[in-house]
Amino acid sequence: MSAETHTTNPSAVTVIGLGPMGRALAAAFLAAGVTTTVWNRTPGRDRELVAAGAVSAASPEEAVAASDLIVVCVVDYDAADFVLRRPEVTAALKGRTVVNLSADVPARAREAGEWAAGHGVRYLDGAIMVPTTVVGTPHGVFLYSGPKDLYEEHKPVLDTLSGEQTHLGEDIGRAAAFDIALLDIWWTSVTGYMHALAIARAEGISGRELEPFAQGIGKILPPAFTEGAAAFDDGEHVATINPMTSAASTMAHIIHASEAHGIDASLMRAAEGMTRRAIGLGYGGDDPSRLAELLGRGR
């Protein structure tokens, strides 16, 4: 039977890539009663899934042939291409749908979409915005981009991953763009917190002592996100609380305290440098949302 006339189970799914996230995805599909075929380049990672009812494919082309919907979750697009662009796998993919949940940059997602279209492969890009422990629970967050009708067609199976499922638009790169922007917030925040813990310890403050007050800082962020987004979109960078001159002064204190203890302050020096450049351009009285505008101009 050719790929164009395949008649696989419409409620079936193949998961390619069985790292921690891939295993979590496959387990969630299985728990929801979806017929699930799995394949991983390194053998042996499918034992628990097979015990739970998954079908282990001997090759990626066999895995692809088992389902109309193929979910790929590997480390990046280089790894995805290594599997999907083998001639025998590409041939088996023709007429089927790939949902690529691997992480990479928007340009790679768009290139993958072009490749898929050129080989008769239906394609959606996606991003998983939660850790493995949340997949399959009501707290999951999954983002998708690409043809809306294709997303709607496979939504019943994708919905079995539970949580919040959002289609972001037809541009295939939008899910990756959201992913990059949101991970920027996450890693900037986490590294900032690690830096704060280092300063606290140098001053004789334990992490557990600092943590309740850090939670308090965290509670201030949601309204700051809302106000900053509106200011950026509207181009109205009026400082309602702290202008950038005040922010730069605070940053200088953090740098001084860090370096007095021999703690690397390069992260805060970068933030202070951006802020002082904005001040030098005459924006000292503005809200920090002005920085996003200047960064977008390459200033």
Results as ranks from 00 to 15, higher is better:
227 E>H: 14
73 C>K: 00
18 L>E: 01
79 A>L: 07
254 I>Q: 01
48 E>V: 10
141 V>F: 15
226 T>W: 10
251 M>L: 12
198 A>E: 06
235 G>Q: 13
244 M>E: 03
270 A>H: 12
271 A>G: 13
69 L>D: 04
124 L>E: 00
80 A>V: 14
218 G>K: 08
53 G>H: 10
258 S>E: 06
252 A>H: 12
31 A>T: 06
1 M>W: 08
158 L>F: 00
34 V>D: 10
64 V>G: 08
170 E>R: 08
82 F>R: 15
119 H>A: 03
206 S>L: 07
79 A>M: 02
293 E>A: 15
135 V>P: 08
202 A>W: 01
281 L>E: 15
47 R>V: 14
174 R>V: 05
1 M>N: 14
190 V>P: 11
214 A>D: 08
147 P>W: 08
177 A>H: 05
235 G>L: 00
228 G>F: 12
225 F>T: 13
255 I>T: 11
220 I>N: 10
131 P>V: 06
259 E>P: 03
131 P>Y: 01
292 A>L: 15
144 Y>S: 02
271 A>K: 00
269 R>K: 13
239 A>V: 04
282 G>M: 07
172 I>C: 03
75 V>W: 12
279 I>V: 12
19 G>N: 13
172 I>V: 15
216 G>T: 10
109 A>R: 04
193 Y>I: 12
46 D>L: 05
42 T>P: 00
223 P>F: 03
20 P>F: 00
88 E>P: 01
50 V>I: 14
46 D>E: 15
22 G>L: 00
111 E>M: 10
273 G>Y: 09
185 I>E: 12
110 R>L: 08
296 G>P: 02
297 R>A: 14
154 H>S: 07
184 D>I: 06
141 V>M: 11
134 V>M: 12
126 G>K: 00
166 T>V: 12
52 A>F: 00
188 T>F: 11
240 T>D: 09
214 A>R: 00
216 G>C: 08
118 G>N: 14
220 I>F: 14
260 A>L: 02
250 T>N: 12
198 A>P: 04
40 N>V: 02
219 K>P: 05
124 L>C: 11
97 T>P: 07
212 P>T: 01
19 G>I: 03
40 N>G: 07
161 L>Y: 01
136 G>M: 09
20 P>N: 07
58 A>W: 01
18 L>K: 03
14 T>V: 10
211 E>K: 07
261 H>F: 06
232 F>L: 12
261 H>L: 09
223 P>C: 14
147 P>N: 13
144 Y>E: 05
230 A>V: 14
135 V>Y: 05
192 G>S: 11
37 T>E: 02
222 P>T: 13
270 A>I: 10
89 V>H: 00
59 S>P: 05
288 P>R: 09
253 H>Q: 15
271 A>E: 02
195 H>G: 08
126 G>H: 01
211 E>W: 13
286 D>A: 10
298 G>Q: 07
240 T>K: 11
26 A>P: 04
203 E>K: 12
201 R>N: 12
90 T>Y: 02
128 I>G: 02
265 A>R: 01
237 H>M: 05
210 L>P: 02
